[in-house]
Write a protein that binds this DNA or RNA. Structure first.
Length: 605
RNA sequence: GCCCUGGUAGUGUAGCGGCCUAUCAUGAAGCCCUGUCGAGGCUUCGACACGGAUUCGAAUUCCGUCCAGGGCGCCA
């Protein structure tokens, strides 16, 4: 008999039906006479009961009994039976199928499982095996209902995005996975060409150039669920390969792009949770984000904002601040209000935060506490009463408040401050984890200037449309990030559609004509054939899923992720390839146990 | 490349110089049990990541290696 129902389907309304269920033996409970099996598949769990005293006439009880002995944990089995009501008082309210059970009339072992390396019942929290064990046996880990739900969630989310974009006239177009390596940006994963020995394709870090060329090609609205590759070190939110919802639109301004994205996120939200998301999303300028929260992707679900104190302390005879201000640095303070933080942070904690501040790149951390209406600390003697009073007013200090004051060069100091702010919020449990706060971070600069080398670097990437003349002191970029709860979900921008302007930006970034031609010649040429004004955005699907599901790492929302060292514990990749394959590709390797010695090669040069 | 944390039966853990012939749970194997649902009861099996050092004595301290995770750099 073929499967008639899944293991999550049967209800009281099915009583009396003859059914065939097929699935995995999750738990079995043999009472000597009557025996139960929790039969599981991705739809749910149905209780199967073997009841030798209550079988239809002519059933070969001994045979079924014998077959059931082979039903070891996680074996796949097929069971024919009759849906019946559970004995009064033994219903399981936690399970949607808990009112019924299937009385076995026939059974078959489809495929035996050896003893699984860990238990798959995941009703109880905190008993998961180490992640490396889960990865080694990911196909078993994925059987767990939590993982099944995650995969379903992700699938639904992507499906909703596709639906929305399709309804809005987007074409889903695949761009190449084998492309051209460029020296800029992240390291490429590289694929050797057999046909052209000595040359290599690169896997895309993003479909950026191709989607822009699709705009040149008049496709007008494009999207792709694009796998992207970067050969850089992993983090909990960074994998060597990851998935972006990548899209591009022609004849749009930034608001059009953001409206479209807000519409899409709302649509996904409605589909996922049945609730309306509040739009439009708030905006925060890059500079404000940095100066208020110490981050370009601030978590604004809690306070602990910074207030600039540069002007307030500029005349204080405190040498450390004087030196910093003389070098163009900033001074800013964070007020840990007495009731939420100040009273919970003692002298020892302050020392701990001072140490932490040093670790995150701050020179140090100045603190003051408001006691009996006066600011007290080891350094108040360096400040005049007027300045102290001014600090109190500026920071809104009240009795018991604790001030942390950071000082130093603008970027490093605010970034360090942002790390400190995050740490304090986590320590004091100030982060609400049931709030989802989307917002746009915009008004970004076009370039960043390396303080050491003085070289220009793109703030986002070199294809962003500059907002003013490239020779101006400050050049803004038409780019923005979509952020959620302190995470960057994606970046978007209007793009340069003029070939000369694109070249000028490359020049500004230090590329000469030869290098531009070699690496981006085809692209600049494309722009010269009537490229329309266009812009686009890419949303990190892995991150979005992880945040919405409250997962600590994107590995939890990727079916087969790589580990920290970019290896797959499941298939053992990356791995060596056979020598004859390398020979065909005309590749020799200097690593591993081939008969080449790096030093020999160096000497021969 | 660097910093930090960790590695004890198949799995999750306790132990943190001698009470260790290493705890508990789960699992596996066997037996018992007719209403359980992570069933229960009894019996059995099974581990200190690897290599050095210190010490009368090391799972425990130290050094190195390997493995896993978090972070810095990196991620235009």
């Amino acid at each position: 008999m073929r499967r008639t129902n899944t293991c999550g389907e049967l209800r009281s309304s099915d009583l009396g039906k003859k059914v065939c269920l097929q699935g995995w033996v999750r738990f079995s409970r043999d009472h000597g006479g009557v025996a139960f099996i929790d039969l599981a598949d991705r739809y749910g769990i149905t209780q199967i009961v073997f009841d030798p005293e209550d079988l239809p006439e002519g059933t070969d009880v001994a045979r079924i009994s014998e077959i059931m002995k082979s039903f070891t944990r996680e074996s796949v089995v097929s069971v024919d039976g009759i849906v019946r009501k559970r004995v009064e008082g033994t219903e399981d309210g936690r399970n949607p199928t808990g009112e019924v059970e299937v009385l076995i009339t026939d059974a078959e072992l489809l495929n035996k499982s050896v003893t699984p390396p860990f238990e798959l019942g995941d009703q109880k929290e905190g008993v998961l095996p180490d992640e490396d064990i889960r990865m080694r046996y990911r196909y078993l880990d994925l059987r767990r209902s939590e993982m099944v739900q995650t995969m379903q969630f992700r699938s639904k989310l992507v499906h909703l995005a596709r639906q929305y974009l399709d309804e809005n006239g987007f074409l889903e177009i695949e761009t190449p996975v084998l492309g051209k390596s460029t020296p800029e940006g992240a390291r490429d994963y590289v694929v050797p060409s057999r046909v052209h020995p000595g040359t290599f394709y690169a896997l895309p870090q993003s479909p950026q150039l191709f989607k822009q060329m699709l705009m040149v090609a008049s496709m007008d609205r494009y999207y792709q669920v694009a796998r992207c590759f970067r050969d850089e070190d992993s983090r909990k939110d960074r994998q060597p390969e990851f998935t972006q919802l990548d899209l591009e639109m022609s004849f749009v301004d930034m608001k059009d792009l953001q409206d479209m994205m807000e519409g899409m996120v709302s649509y996904i939200w409605k589909g996922l949770y049945g609730q309306d998301l509040v739009t439009p999303f708030p905006h925060i300028a890059y500079r404000d984000a940095m100066e208020r929260f110490g981050s370009d992707k601030p978590d604004m679900r809690y306070g602990l904002e910074f207030t600039k104190l540069t002007d307030v302390v500029k005349d204080a005879p405190y040498k450390i601040f004087q030196n910093i201000l003389a070098e163009g640095g900033i001074v800013a303070g964070m007020n840990l209000k007495a009731e939420i933080a100040g009273n919970k942070v003692g002298r020892n904690d302050v020392d701990r935060y001072i140490n932490y501040a040093k670790k995150v790149g701050l020179g140090g951390l100045t603190w003051m506490r408001c006691v009996d209406g006066k600011l007290e600390s080891n350094i108040v003697k360096y400040f005049t009463p007027e300045i102290l009073e001014n600090i109190k007013t500026t920071m809104g200090v009240e009795e018991g408040d604790l001030l942390f004051i950071i000082a130093g060069p603008w970027k490093a100091t605010y970034e360090g401050g942002g790390a400190l702010r995050k740490k304090i919020a986590e320590d004091l449990d100030l982060v609400p984890n049931d709030v989802f706060q989307f917002f746009w971070m915009d008004e970004c600069p076009m370039f960043e200037i390396d303080p050491v080398s003085g070289k220009y670097d793109s703030f986002h990437h070199p294809f962003v449309l500059p907002q003013n003349d490239l020779d101006d002191d400050y050049v803004g970029g038409a780019c923005f990030d979509l952020c959620l709860n302190g995470n960057e979900l994606g970046s978007g921008s209007l793009r340069i559609h003029n070939a000369d302007l694109q070249k000028a930006v490359f020049h500004k970034l230090g590329l000469d004509d030869e290098r531009i031609e070699e690496n981006f010649g085809f692209f600049v040429e494309a722009l010269s054939y009537g490229a329309p004004p266009h812009g686009g955005i890419a949303i990190g699907i892995d991150r979005l899923c992880a945040i919405l599901l409250n997962k600590d790492t994107i590995r939890e929302v990727i079916a087969f992720p790589k580990n920290k060292r970019a290896t797959s514990l499941l298939d053992g990749s990356p791995s060596k390839v056979a020598d004859d394959k390398l020979e065909e590709l005309q590749i020799i390797t200097l690593a591993g146990d081939m008969d080449f010695d790096f030093e020999d090669i160096e000497e021969s040069e």
